[in-house]
Design a protein around this nucleic acid. Structure first.
Lengths: 154, 154
DNA sequence: TGTGAAACTAACTGGGG
DNA sequence: CCCCAGTTAGTTTCACA
């Protein structure tokens, strides 16, 4: 993992379909060493996969909701169970255990507020062990950026 | 945007480097119509771009922090200014204006807690107009999933 | 709209500096 | 390690159903 690798990753974050020639030109290398470095980064698990950036609005997914959740118990078992239930709800696209005055933060993506109300009633409120939850709707996204790859390497 | 398009998008979300043959096989189509549909989805802005999924830990970015921010003023101008400042801080990878009892949620990615302390002191605390902020460290990520593409189309 | 084949372009492999 | 040239695989175009 040197500066060249980080340049390549930055280019791939911006556009993972850039050809090896383009990447090479961008970082000052020819295509084959870029290819080798990328393969190494894949094998090392630095690159976990390749995806598309989709526009949720265009897909009819207009609302994203951030839900703060506090559970009754903090046992290993509760966390495990909670994770399992969340895994079965497709609208829950992210779930984090966090420090601070609540326990979990969920990111939920839905069509509209009606859809969210339905989800709350039919799925979230049925989960046992939730002491408290608080929903915040995302009204506007000010920034959505790639990972910062400029710091010194590990 | 029909069911076929959604199948193709689901496949691309899982692996955007799958060949058109693979995608075609997965959705029950030959390569060329898949290509045409993908081009259409790009032009329509449904597909915004192609990226890599990176492992932040492997890049030396071990901590992600969710920061709740409340500003002094709620004017258009304040929002604008705040957005501009955030745009210049690479560690801030996401910033959302949200409803509820705080105003913004920031997602910040840093090397470690020392690095976060430095960021707080040198960057965030220097932003004028912040009334209050509260940091939560992500201790564990229970789920990180693709967008749900099963609902009925727009 | 979809299929299948032809033309083109990019990804991969190996020899040499 | 990197560059360059050859081989293989994938993408893009097009005529036809």
């Amino acid at each position: 993992m040197d500066a060249m690798d980080r340049k390549i990753l930055a280019r791939l974050q911006a556009d993972s379909r850039a050809s090896l020639q383009e990447i090479g030109a961008a970082v000052g290398l020819s295509a084959s060493p870029c290819w080798g470095r990328i393969k190494k980064l894949e094998e090392a698990g630095v690159i976990e996969g390749y995806t598309v950036r989709l526009n949720p609005q265009a897909l009819g997914l207009s609302d994203t909701v951030l839900v703060q959740v506090t559970l009754d118990s903090h046992s290993d078992n509760t966390l495990e169970k909670f994770g399992e239930v969340l895994a079965t709800i497709p609208e829950v696209v992210e779930a984090h255990l966090v420090s601070g005055d609540y326990d979990y933060l969920l990111r939920i993506v839905v069509k509209d507020t009606r859809d969210y109300e339905r989800l709350l009633r039919e799925k979230l409120y049925k989960i046992r062990g939730i002491r408290h939850s608080r929903s915040s709707f995302v009204l506007r996204t000010l920034k959505k950026a790639d990972l910062p790859l400029h710091g010194t390497p590990p």
